[in-house]
Amino acid sequence: MAHLESVPMFWRRMKSLYSLIGVECLNCGKKYFPPRLICPECGGKEMKDYRFKGTGKVVSYSIIDVPPKGLKYQTPYGLAIVELDEGVRVTGQLVGCNLGEIKAGMRVETTFRKIIAVNKNGVIQYGYKFRPEGYPRINNGEKK
């Protein structure tokens, strides 16, 4: 898990992790997250930063009991594939609700949380996670 302790690697991904910034192909308009240098769709090499709205729906999820290093004390937690409203699918942890409230199709939005702190002396890595849309104006995962 050496990559988790790489400060430059975290720093290079910071804009994506903090603000869900991906790219948009200037040729065909296709959006990507995480960012790509070349568009797989049209081969275009001109990409510009695109800030995703951060809202979407859960496509699929799993409850994690055996986590990677650094997440031991957060278990059990929900990990979901979320389809953003722009059509891109991303993976993220689900917070702000009970595990029993998570379901496929539920609307979610990004929130800013600690992702991992591998040890007490290392850099704390922050970034996006997902929570029920409309938080905190929710009730058991449903908007009031």
Binding site: Y73, Q74, V95, T111, F112, R113, K114, I115, I124, Y126, K129
Partner: peptide
């Protein structure tokens, strides 16, 4: 706070 919340995450949410 939740396990993954601290002063920075609280500050960011309030600031947003």
């Amino acid at each position: 706070p939740d396990m993954d919340e601290d002063t920075i995450t609280i500050a960011v949410e309030a600031a947003k």
